[in-house]
Design a protein around this nucleic acid. Structure first.
Lengths: 222, 222
DNA sequence: GCATTAATTAATGCATGCGCAAATAAATGC
DNA sequence: GCATTTATTTGCGCATGCATTAATTAATGC
């Protein structure tokens, strides 16, 4: 008996996501349902359902007769995404500070900060990116708003997709961890205003760095 | 020949949305795919696809073997939603002010405000709700961030769903239009800080009113 | 040779049916 | 009578096939 594990739809969602992230399914490219179906070795039905889901997540677009198009991300798109992240994450930071979490709750956040330090010391880009993700995810979780979590996760996905390219265009942001520490401390001390504002500026800064970088390299899309 | 209009999936999405909003499909109720299928007089396939879409919009939940559950909205959910709206709309207001729109661009906004005045004068709840929706939608549009538009639209949907109940629990918010005017003026004059802060407080106020109202009426969900 | 129309091809939307697993009911052992 | 096992039902996941319609190519008129 083969396996009864995850459904084909779930596999399709995962597989397609992975291939979009890896660039295997390139941004801007079109793909017929049948093409994806026999790529994933299943019938069109679960592929269609997976594609519907991914469309809802903003990763691709359904264009009847033309196939599904993997959505490219323009610099403008990135600016939009960063603005959403800025607003929602800084709100989460504010809330996290108000909820007076104990050190136990903040353990993961602290760990992420330490890991980023280590990654910077070791000059390990991937490790840094991973820890940075964890910091932001955890921050949002501490904010306690499940809808914000979901939206931020979706937007972060897009950023991650772009980061494959952008991460190697610049040095490690060694100063960025100062902000993380400030936010962490503010949350710990219940200083909501500082948590909010610091994180806001942190994100705004990241946005301007990125937009500038994209401009400099004349990247029209990712 | 019957009609070749909108696809069955689209019809299913529309129909189901309408029935959820009208309460015909009650919050918290479960429904089998086959039940919905012959309710809408089509096969399960398009219904499944529609349901997938609506799940992505947070209106229902798929629970294999138990049917699709129409998601109830608790007071906590409403609080979450209002926080998202507060952050993203006030950002949009800020941006709208920075983009120096001319009076032409702001025409719809102005009209919505006038319509709310008229509705208050005429004590017309539905007209007020409609104009209020248009104000917020238009405000966000003027902010120029398509992702924020999409997210706000989704969240507003949920609020609208709840409003069917809540609108009749309280008098018309006659003072609310003062805020709208202030925001409008700030946008017109390019005063981003005022636009942002005024709208933020406007939304926060709306949130506390609603939460209080739900508490008073002991509503566990909508 | 170009434009308009007809014929062909191809991709999708959707209905249908079947196998499987979960939920429910029945049966059996103790 | 209760618990555990076995039978039955039921709802879903998915493959398959067909009709519809858009896209493409061929054909025809001028």
């Amino acid at each position: 008996m083969p396996d009864k594990g995850p459904s084909n739809v779930q596999r399709a969602v995962q597989e397609l996501r992975a291939r979009i992230f890896s660039g295997d399914l390139a941004a801007g490219s079109d793909h017929l349902e049948s093409e994806l179906a026999n790529l994933l070795e299943m019938s069109r039905t679960p592929v269609r359902e997976a594609v519907l889901t991914l469309e809802g997540q903003g990763l691709l677009e359904l264009r009847p007769r033309k196939g599904v198009r993997i959505l490219p991300l323009s610099p403008d798109d990135m600016a939009e995404i960063y603005d959403v992240l800025t607003e929602l994450e800084s709100h989460a930071a504010e809330r996290a500070a108000q909820l007076d979490h104990d050190d136990d709750d903040l353990a993961d956040l602290a760990r992420a900060i330490r890991d980023m330090d280590a990654a910077i010391t070791g000059n390990d880009l991937d490790a840094w990116a991973d820890a940075d993700d964890r910091f932001h995810t955890e921050l949002v979780r501490l904010g306690g708003n499940s809808r914000i979590e979901a939206i931020v996760a979706m937007m972060s996905d897009q950023v991650r997709r772009a980061r494959t390219t952008t991460l190697f265009m610049r040095p490690l942001p060694t100063k960025s961890n100062e902000d993380h520490r400030t936010v962490y401390q503010a949350i710990r001390e219940g200083d909501a205003a500082t948590a909010r504002e610091t994180h806001r500026q942190h994100r705004q800064h990241a946005k301007s760095i990125l937009v500038e970088l994209l401009g400099k390299h004349r990247l029209r899309f990712l």
